[in-house]
């Protein structure tokens, strides 16, 4: 069954002269984990607010769970806003249960559910504590739990990972995976590519209000050529003449390397075609007597895709 829980068609939103969201269309199939990526100010939060019908788009249409307005189906949606905050004076369990009851859950069921969630995700000891006594990260976990306590079909998390330590990031990843396993659809926005890489089935990349990429992770990786990283002394011209080499860029690594390279050593990044065989490149290096200190063949990371697409100033990118 491949129905879509969410469809945006040519949605735009302007604030005065500033266009926050520019003609964005995408669809999210049921049961997927969908990453929503983009640099700061790209329009992620505005898009999410329009999806929730907190804001109205200036043009375009939104279909969410078969309705035109999220307000009609708000009990089936869970939402974590970008800026996190809770009622400071309330008890942890009470706040989770309160938000669940606002989503139509029965009071007693909501309370039991709150305790269940707190136990599952390691906050059992804090159930009776007041929110103001929690650390920022713990408060954020509580807020995520309060957003999903009512078991919504569609979960929308705006920057859920920011401000969490690595351990809690993992707990959150587990929560997202749990929800996906239960058949819930999860949309989350983030800057941190590793999370998207690990979690997402599909992703949407936006910059300056425009859609730059929409597809699976594998599609995204295919956007930029594969790379071979070489560190050596002297000339690498013989390699550049090989078939399947698209080009080479010399990089200065002073900033990224813990130990500076020894004198005369240069760092190259070769872009190669998909069919090119890195084995042959290595072989040619030996044949040409190039003294290698490093040879690296890597898949491009989402980070690279991100920098590639957004950094080289955003035009809409078309793919096969």
């Amino acid at each position: 069954m491949q129905d879509n829980v969410l469809e945006l068609t040519r949605v735009s939103k302007r604030y005065g002269a500033f266009t926050a969201v520019d003609d964005i269309s995408f669809a999210i199939p049921r049961g997927t984990i969908y990453g929503f990526l983009g640099p700061n100010g790209a329009g992620k939060t505005t898009t999410i607010r329009m999806i929730l019908d907190i804001l109205r788009p200036d043009s375009g249409s939104i279909n969410i769970l078969g309705e035109t307005s999220a307000l009609n189906v708000r009990q089936r949606i869970g939402y974590l806003p970008e800026e996190k905050g809770l009622y400071k004076k309330m008890k942890v369990w009470a706040i989770i249960s309160y938000f669940a009851t606002l989503k139509g859950m029965d009071k007693r069921v909501a309370k039991a559910r709150a305790f269940e969630l707190l136990e599952t995700y390691g906050l059992k000891d804090y159930a009776e504590a007041r929110v103001e006594s929690l650390s920022k990260g713990m408060g954020q976990k509580v807020q995520v739990l309060s957003a999903v306590a009512h078991r919504p079909e569609l979960v929308i998390l705006d920057e859920p990972f920011s401000g969490l330590d690595p351990v809690n990031q993992e707990v959150l990843e587990q929560l997202i995976n749990d929800m996906a396993a239960a058949g819930q659809t999860v949309i989350f926005s983030t800057h941190i590519m590793q999370h998207a890489e690990r979690l997402c089935d599909r992703m949407l990349l936006v910059a300056k209000g425009r859609k730059i990429f929409d597809g699976t992770i594998a599609d995204a990786r295919a956007i930029i050529p594969r790379r071979v990283i070489l560190e050596c002394q002297g000339d690498i011209t013989p390699i550049l003449q090989m078939d399947g080499i698209l080009g080479a860029v010399e990089k200065s690594l002073e900033h990224s390397h813990a130990e500076p390279l020894s004198v005369g050593t240069r760092h190259w990044e070769l872009q190669i075609q998909e069919h090119a065989n890195p084995q042959l490149i290595l072989q040619r290096c030996f044949e040409s007597g190039i003294p290698l200190t490093r040879f690296d063949y890597t898949q491009p990371s989402l980070h690279d895709v991100f920098v590639h697409l957004v950094g080289s100033d955003a035009k809409e990118h078309h793919f096969r």
Binding site: L52, Q75, Y79, P81, L86, Y87, F99
Partner: peptide, 17 residues
């Protein structure tokens, strides 16, 4: 103002009108 500055308002508005 507390709800507004805490952004609780967004969660609330995703649940109630």
């Amino acid at each position: 103002i507390e709800e507004k500055s805490n952004r609780i308002i967004e969660v609330l508005l995703a649940s109630v009108t």
